[in-house]
Each structure stands twice: as structure tokens, then as C-alpha cells.
């Protein structure tokens, strides 16, 4: 016990998610090699790296979405608040660890029904409580003022940026402790991107965020910690300003200065 408290760097003690020696396989192809990482609580952690480096695969193991692909296997340990995520109930895990995808994927329902979906299906929340929860989630996603008159219109009537924030609101509605974002801005214009980045800043007060991004500027702008993945390995993980200013490895430096990738 004492060793643990003394032996770990400061940020590890407030780690929301602790990943140790994670290997991941698609069939017989290994996609992640011995990844260990501590995601700090109530902060934004960015994962960068060239395409196919395993950063999205890693993100999807954190809420076990990786299991939706057949014939995958995983070794190692992921602790959420000290609890092994592979031994907790899948539904409970995914309510605690929400996810936003690369392309906005609102359901073909109304704006209201999209946000209410998670509460209705799993919680049975109804009536005024449901309406309040929907409004609160849309406010947290900084979307309420723009669409409060369109609550009962199809979600497809919204712009791409609004749809993505709707998906964030949908994830927030079930009050997740962690929010995983898989390249959430790659399909959006710069103004919508700025709005989502701003939103991430406010969300970290109540939520731990992990974002996979292809944009190094985005990682530098929003995150407190950054991990650099290459060929399935986590090559470097550090505070963002250190990683970008004084990268510890040649490969990291080459990548962030645009020499490859």
C-alpha cells in the first residue's frame, strides 16, 4: 500500500483510468503492444499518431466498444476508479464511459428523442424529469439556445456541427464520468470545431475526457496530457506542453514537426 502511494508520479494518484500492459488482437494480428497509461481525472487527454497506429483501437477498449468487432481479444488490465472494466457489467460501464464518434451519428428521431434515448431505454425516466434532463444535457453541450425551437424536428435537419454537439448531448444525458471522443471534429468546419473545443474545456469540470485526434494543433490547444502512438505502441506520454516543446523521442519529434505521418 505504502509503496503504491509513494512510487507513483503525482498525476497517477488521481488517475481516473489506469491502463496496464494492454495487448490487443484483431484475430491473430496484434494491434496494441504493452500499452500502459494513466488518464488523469477531470482533464483532457489527447491521443495522437499516424493512421493505423492503434490510437482509435485503444480508445475503443476503454468502453469495450472494441468487443463489437468479432474475433478480437485483449490482454492486460484497465482499471476505472480502481475497478477492472472487464469484470463489471457492460451496460453499467458504458453508462459511465460515454463515447462520441468520428462522424455525427444522430438517430433518425427528433432532437428531443435523441437526447432522451439513453434515459428512456435504460432508466425509464419520464415526463417533466425527462424534459429537464434533456434541457440540461443540451445546455451542457452548448446547443440549447440554438435549437430550443427545433426540439421536435428531425435531428437530420441540424447542421453537421450541431449534429455532433447533439451526439455529445446524447452521451452527456446519462451523466458519464468519462467521455471518449474519436476524432470528433474530423468531419466539421473550423467554426464548429472551435465550438466543440470550447465545449470540451467546460466539460472537464465534471468529466474526464479522452480525445483521439489527427490534428496536432487541436491536441496542443485542448489537452493537458498527450500520448503519441506509433505502430501499436504508446511511444510517449506526457504533459502536453512538455511533449510538444521537448519531445523525449526522435519519432515523436518527427511526427509533430510534420516529417512523417
Amino acid at each position: 500500500m505504502e509503496d503504491e502511494a509513494l512510487g507513483k508520479p503525482p498525476q497517477a494518484r488521481s488517475a481516473k483510468i489506469q491502463v496496464s500492459h494492454l495487448d490487443f488482437y484483431y484475430g491473430s494480428v496484434q494491434a496494441l503492444y504493452n500499452v500502459s497509461l494513466a488518464v488523469p481525472q477531470n482533464q483532457i487527454t489527447a491521443l495522437i499518431g499516424p493512421s493505423g497506429c492503434g490510437k482509435s483501437t485503444f480508445l475503443r477498449t476503454l468502453n469495450r466498444m472494441s468487443e463489437t468487432v468479432r474475433h478480437t481479444s485483449v490482454e492486460g488490465e484497465i482499471l476505472l476508479d480502481g475497478e477492472n472494466i472487464f469484470s463489471v457489467d457492460l451496460v453499467a460501464l458504458r453508462r459511465r464511459v460515454g463515447m462520441v464518434f468520428q462522424r455525427p451519428n444522430p438517430f433518425p428521431k427528433t432532437v428531443f428523442d435523441n437526447v432522451a434515448y439513453g434515459l428512456r431505454v435504460n432508466g425509464g425516466t419520464r415526463g417533466a424529469a425527462l424534459a429537464d434532463a434533456v434541457e440540461a444535457s443540451l445546455r451542457r453541450a452548448a446547443l440549447w439556445d440554438e435549437i430550443k425551437d427545433k426540439l421536435h424536428k428531425s435531428a437530420y435537419a441540424l447542421s453537421g456541427g450541431q449534429q455532433q454537439r447533439l451526439c455529445i448531448a446524447r452521451a452527456l444525458a446519462v451523466n458519464p464520468e468519462v467521455l471518449l471522443l474519436d476524432e470528433p471534429c474530423s468531419a466539421l468546419d473550423p467554426i464548429s470545431t472551435a465550438k466543440i473545443e470550447e465545449l470540451m474545456f467546460t466539460l472537464q469540470e465534471n468529466c474526464t475526457l479522452v480525445i483521439v485526434t489527427h490534428s496536432m494543433q487541436q491536441a496542443a490547444r485542448v489537452s493537458s496530457h498527450t500520448g503519441f502512438f506509433l505502430l501499436g505502441r504508446l511511444l510517449e506520454f506526457n504533459e502536453t506542453n512538455i511533449l510538444f516543446k521537448r519531445p523525449g523521442r526522435k519519432e515523436t519529434e518527427d511526427y509533430i514537426t510534420g516529417r512523417f505521418g
Binding site: M65, A92, F101, N105, P106, P108, N122
Partner: peptide
């Protein structure tokens, strides 16, 4: 129907059949 819709539901902690 795009499979991303089902992913969105699964990520909210909904069982597959639901």
C-alpha cells in the same frame, strides 16, 4: 441503416437487441 447508429446506441450502454 448505417452501422454507426447501432454503435451510438451500444455506446450508451444499450444491449444489442434493444
Amino acid at each position: 441503416v448505417p452501422s454507426t447508429l447501432l454503435e451510438g446506441a451500444l455506446a450508451l450502454g444499450v444491449s444489442r437487441w434493444k
